[in-house]
């Protein structure tokens, strides 16, 4: 899905590992990301605080399949499934290791 060695491909929040710290570049909903329409999913993500420039950190993962994830986004802690988190494009904060799955 996300190839770290290729700088032009996007890093998606849904692929990032626990401990990841970065900033949100934007929301990019692709078909199959969710059972919702792209407008609906994007609106819901923004309403939960996933806006451009916000700082994100993945705090916890679920026990089964490392899903869902608990993410701190600009001070709020939100739990969501990796499937929906695929719509959030992020960039790692410089100096922190990125371990994508």
């Amino acid at each position: 899905m996300s190839d770290v060695s290729n700088p032009s491909s996007k890093l998606l929040l849904g692929n990032a590992r626990r401990g990841f710290v970065g900033t949100i570049q934007g929301i990019d909903v692709v078909e199959g990301h969710s059972s919702l329409s792209s407008h609906e999913l994007e609106s819901q993500l923004i309403e939960m605080g996933f806006v451009e420039g916000a700082q994100v950190e993945i705090l916890h993962e679920g026990a089964i399949g490392r899903d869902p994830i608990a993410v701190r986004v600009n001070g709020i802690t939100v739990a969501l499934r990796r499937r929906e988190a695929q719509a959030v494009v992020v960039k790692a904060v410089a100096g922190r290791p990125v371990t994508a799955r």
């Binding site: 969710s34 059972s35 919702l36 999913l41 819901q44 993500l45 939960m48 869902p68 608990a70 709020i76 802690t77 939100v78 739990a79 969501l80 499934r81 499937r83 929906e84």
Partner: peptide, 8 residues
């Protein structure tokens, strides 16, 4: 169904 998106 609403996706699982929950504030902790």
């Amino acid at each position: 169904p609403a996706p699982f998106m929950l504030e902790l």
